[in-house]
Design a protein around this nucleic acid. Structure first.
Lengths: 129, 129
DNA sequence: ATCGACAGTATCCTTTTTGGTACTACGTAC
DNA sequence: GTACGTAGTACCAAAAAGGATACTGTCGAT
């Protein structure tokens, strides 16, 4: 049973915790969802909010979120391209979970000053709500 | 309280959501915490609760949980060995988070029986609400 | 004529994570 | 004297995840 985590839910009998985590698994999904929780965003808007993620990674994470039904992707056939990412109704049901995660992080996780001065504050500032 | 600061400084992407997720990252941490939430467990008790995890993986995940301060490991110098795993005070502060994860999983994640019997492929599906 | 914004792909490479199997030591029970 | 339960290690291989860089095409502005 060497399958990616996202497909392994059956391996956790009676454990919905891992089931939920499998939807959030991926280096940037948590932040992405947090930002989308606050409103629809275009691809590059999201990119600017996550300066450390590469284009390739952002695309990949978004596609996975789309595939799992948490985020919708709407392409407007215009030039230049316009693509909007938005939480689906299912995605919004995750809000309490994300808020719980954020609350715990804020209370128990401390960010070193070095990390903050190295360009990560863009993520941190958007997290107030 | 022992703060997992060293680890955080290295891995903290700058977002409290991701920060919290980084503590839960690892294929089995969610389930492990879920079980330990219900009480202290010995190594092999935990193993029996997670039939699919190998000894090596279980050890590894437990050591990581210990290192991040969520779980404590107590060795009793007896023969045969007796090692007890237990949530730390910091670990118990995660309870609301774990419960939120569990609640969402129970409400939105389903595993189709056919897929389950065929193997483990893609049996996790989220239902639109 | 060239540049940048837009939303990505394609290709290659490195790192991290996970899995499989075998092995340890000690004591007790059969 | 052989197996079982305890709590792990050590070693090797496979798989998955993540990163770096370069490239696409159209348009509007400079």
């Amino acid at each position: 049973m060497s399958l990616p985590r996202a497909k392994l839910v059956k391996n956790f009998p009676g454990c919905p915790v891992e089931a939920t985590l499998s939807f959030l698994d991926g280096k940037w999904k948590g932040v992405i969802l947090f930002h989308l929780m606050q409103g629809t965003l275009r691809f590059n808007e999201l990119r600017r909010k996550l300066p450390a993620v590469t284009q390739r990674m952002l695309t990949k994470q978004l596609r996975e979120l789309e595939e799992s039904g948490l985020v919708s992707r709407t392409v407007y056939p215009v030039v230049p391209p316009r693509v909007e990412y938005k939480m689906t109704p299912l995605g919004t049901t995750l809000k309490p979970v994300i808020l719980a995660l954020a609350a715990w992080g804020e209370e128990h996780v401390f960010c070193s000053p070095e990390a903050a001065s190295e360009g990560f504050e863009a993520c941190a500032t958007a997290l107030q709500s």
